[in-house]
């Protein structure tokens, strides 16, 4: 779930307010968006992708983290290089190669499921 909006980094562009598919944010009076409906967060990471200054952090857990969790601590997230890591991963942002250009995964070992046994109907 969305856990961090960095007031220090945020430039108040409202992109996350718009791009969040489940309308989690409200515009804050100081321009910094407020996490108004965390319960509705679907942990899709889209807000992070759209934030131009890497001010948001979405923890991978689909339930809110308790106070004191490392993944709610902006300083620790910054140190760990996690702020903005999704945007970097998909290659969004000036000077980056779009991740789509490089997106060639491995061939998958294919184990096709077996169809169910057939019993001819008697009717």
């Amino acid at each position: 779930m969305i856990e961090v909006v960095s007031a220090e980094r945020c430039i108040g562009c409202d992109k996350c307010v718009l791009a969040c598919p489940t309308d989690v944010f409200d515009r804050g009076t100081d321009g910094v968006p407020v996490i108004a409906r965390q319960d509705d967060c679907q942990t899709c990471f889209m807000c992070e992708a759209y934030c131009p200054v890497d001010a948001l952090f979405v923890a991978p857990e689909t339930r809110p983290l308790p106070d004191g969790s490392a993944l709610r601590d902006e300083a620790r997230l910054t140190d760990a290089g996690l702020l903005g890591s999704y945007r970097a991963g998909i290659g969004w942002g000036r000077g980056r190669t779009p991740g789509a250009r490089l997106a060639v995964g491995p061939d998958l070992p294919r184990a096709t499921p077996a169809p169910p046994p057939v019993k001819p109907s008697t009717t």
């Binding site: 990471f45 991978p60 993944l71 890591s85 999704y86 998909i90 997106a103 060639v104 995964g105 491995p106």
Partner: peptide, 25 residues
């Protein structure tokens, strides 16, 4: 554990979002 080195590298490029939970946890 059935992926070799080259496959592991390719996965990161193939689907960046697959690694989000792992990298963050």
């Amino acid at each position: 554990d059935r992926a070799d080195e080259a496959q592991r590298r390719a996965m990161r490029l193939g689907q960046a979002n697959f690694f989000l939970p792992f990298d963050r946890l």
